[in-house]
Design a protein around this nucleic acid. Structure first.
Lengths: 251, 251
DNA sequence: CGTTACGTTGAAAGCTTTCAAGCATCGTGG
DNA sequence: CCACGATGCTTGAAAGCTTTCAACGTAACG
């Protein structure tokens, strides 16, 4: 687990953000866009496996994922790790730290990640100057909460195979909202250890469980990545309905 | 599972809310209090075991628990149930439905519950007229997210006994923030089925697990309720640190 | 070429669920 | 007033799922 590289400074101006053009994100008004742009302090690059945020830190910043995949996790004092959720482009990161004062989870990069860095101090200003953006922050928090609800249901009540199917269907769905993966199959950048720590299973059992999904031709496991072959089949196996597509804010 | 009783209309004016005086809640300014008061439409009473909100409903309202205990849960199509979190006085309820448009979980009363009912339509107005209150809503959402993070860690990575200890320590802690239970022991209004559905265990195993905690004199199980005898012992067993006390907003 | 990270397997041990009863309390209808 | 059904708590035992232990194979890297 390396440290993150120092900020590389601003590169992408918000007005020309490559994400903002995607159909997944709602259009911002001119003033909103202007504010967000002034809110941004720069960019940060994190390599695969590096720690983006660490539990206990009083992180001074709020981030948005510009590109790459990452994950949030917590660990018990003896080292057991639980992955809480995954972060994809457009996701806000560090809100708990910004709002509640302290981060109680860590974040690590799953691929090379570029983050937009925002100034935590200006968060109050955001709420005051742009009620709509304030509402958006709440919206994003509620969305995260809903995802956690689903994960908790899954870890608590689904069988191992169902859990694995749910996780992969979920990740496929999230990636799909960013850009259709219709004719290209999606490769999720994970190790089996990540899957195990998400599902609450041991690595050995996870391996055997993923193998069952592979035998049904739902997925194919490659080196450090999972190819999602049949997302509908996974959904069906997990008895999970993907949420209907809604445009979301991009801060 | 009965239906909730119809609204009983306003009884407690926000300015004289019995909760607001508690040290757990931050002081509101005059205008904030006035707004919250105008935001409130009335009160709702729910009996033990009744459904307060149901999955799939487009709930038009936002609620705050005025008194009593309730819980949020999700179910799989085949009936398996997972309890997601508990609601105590001062907790906001229905935010996901208000913000994202649809409720994907249900809420049920654990004791008789009185709720303050707010108008969802005025939520935008809240953000516009009182940035501070808007921030507070985000704060509450981030707090809920943090609790879910902890639950997920627990269900995913703790052993059965640790999980049970964590849950009871957690509930004790939440109740304690509302009013010290120093010389009186706390009675948590639960059945073992609730505990099972929170921990992701079967009812039989839950029974045996709770028995182990009772043998260690950490708890005592009564009829439909759990007496927390040694909250510190439970925390230690679960290796869990209770969050430090922070005053929180009460909307 | 040794080391490390990741994936794979088989088998034994251990934990959890399921099945099957049984007990107690409570409210209700006969 | 008492029997009866419903709800909640208990227990023992067998079945089933998951972890742990122990190896092994491969690919990437220094």
């Amino acid at each position: 687990m390396n440290l993150v590289l120092p900020s590389t400074g601003r590169r992408v101006p918000c007005e020309q953000c490559p994400l903002r053009g995607l159909p997944a994100f709602r259009d911002f008004t001119e003033p909103e866009l202007k504010f967000v742009s002034s809110f941004k302090r720069g960019e940060l690059v994190a390599e695969t496996g590096s720690a983006i945020l660490s539990e206990g830190n009083h992180s001074p910043h709020l981030y948005t994922v510009l590109s790459g995949w990452a994950f949030r996790f917590k660990t018990l004092p003896d080292g057991r790790r639980q992955i809480l959720n995954y972060l994809l482009p457009g996701d806000l990161l560090g809100l708990q730290g910004s709002v509640l004062g302290e981060m109680e989870h860590s974040v690590e990069a799953l691929t090379p990640v570029i983050l937009c860095v925002f100034q935590r101090d200006k968060l109050n200003e955001l709420f005051e100057a742009h009620a709509g953006l304030g509402f958006d922050v709440t919206w994003l928090a509620a969305r995260e909460e809903r995802m956690l609800d689903e994960h908790l249901l899954s870890v608590g009540r689904r069988t191992a195979v169902e859990r694995a199917a749910y996780l992969l269907a979920f990740l496929h769905n999230r990636a799909a909202t960013l850009g259709p993966v219709t004719d290209k199959v999606l490769h999720v950048p994970l190790t089996q250890q990540h899957v195990a720590d998400t599902l609450g299973l041991s690595i050995v059992h996870t391996n055997k469980t993923l193998r069952k999904l592979a035998e049904k031709d739902l997925i194919r496991w490659l080196d450090r990545s999972c190819e999602i072959i049949d997302p509908e089949g996974l959904q069906e196996l997990a008895d999970w309905d993907a949420p209907r597509e809604i445009t979301r804010p991009l801060i």
